[in-house]
Design a protein around this nucleic acid. Structure first.
Lengths: 107, 107
DNA sequence: TTAATATGCAACTATATGGTTGCAAATATA
DNA sequence: TATATTTGCAACCATATAGTTGCATATTAA
């Protein structure tokens, strides 16, 4: 197959998947597939495919309870993207501004 | 088309494009297409396609001089990815560790 | 037990993607 | 001028991707 970082980047490169992931993150709880798909215009099967891709990237965990499958966001794989990015930070403009903003958020 | 962040993420979601981009970043200078493609196993036309995708994402600038086209990396679009990521940082584990590593790098 | 709900699987479609080869055109060199 | 180099364009191919519909199955509720 492909390496982890590629799998993760491909998962978040699709706008619908980013929306699904975001919805699950802000929900801050596990949601069954039907409930997720009710928030989108595409079919439940379309959503299911996206959920599988997200699961493959580790960005969601799916837990079966009875006939329902609860999906919960897991942001941890994004740490790998962050790590990949970090190297290039020295090559983009305004890195110092980013640091001060970063520190402002912490105080 | 698609929004900027999607264009950028799709550009870096391909491992070959990440390699090309990385080669240009570390080269720290503009390189002509033939020279870039000599570093890869795929054809020059394959490389050209990737370069166009990277250019479309703003990750490289192409400057024509005579018959050659010099490509130079531009990491700035990655700031948008960083901004997108930043929101999810609060949801992943070990954010404080990341901060201390970040500060260590600065000192 | 019967009906409703939640889901998976499979088949199918259209388009995008990553790659190729062949050829023409522009520029540089002998 | 004749030749070599660098590139773009176009056509083509195989596979991946994003989406669909139809149907079967498992679980829950009436």
């Amino acid at each position: 197959m492909q390496d982890r970082i590629t799998t993760i980047l491909k998962a978040v490169a699709d706008p619908t998947r980013r929306e699904i992931f975001h919805a699950l993150v802000v929900a801050a709880t596990a949601l069954p597939i039907t409930q997720i798909s009710s928030q989108f215009d595409i079919s439940r099967q379309g959503i299911t495919k996206h959920l599988k891709t997200l699961e493959g990237a580790g960005l969601i965990n799916i837990d079966t309870k009875g006939r329902e499958r609860f999906c919960q966001a897991n942001a941890n794989p994004l740490k790998e993207v962050n790590q990949w990015l970090k190297f290039y930070e020295q090559f983009w403009d305004g890195a110092l501004d980013d640091l001060s903003k970063y520190l402002d958020n912490m105080s």
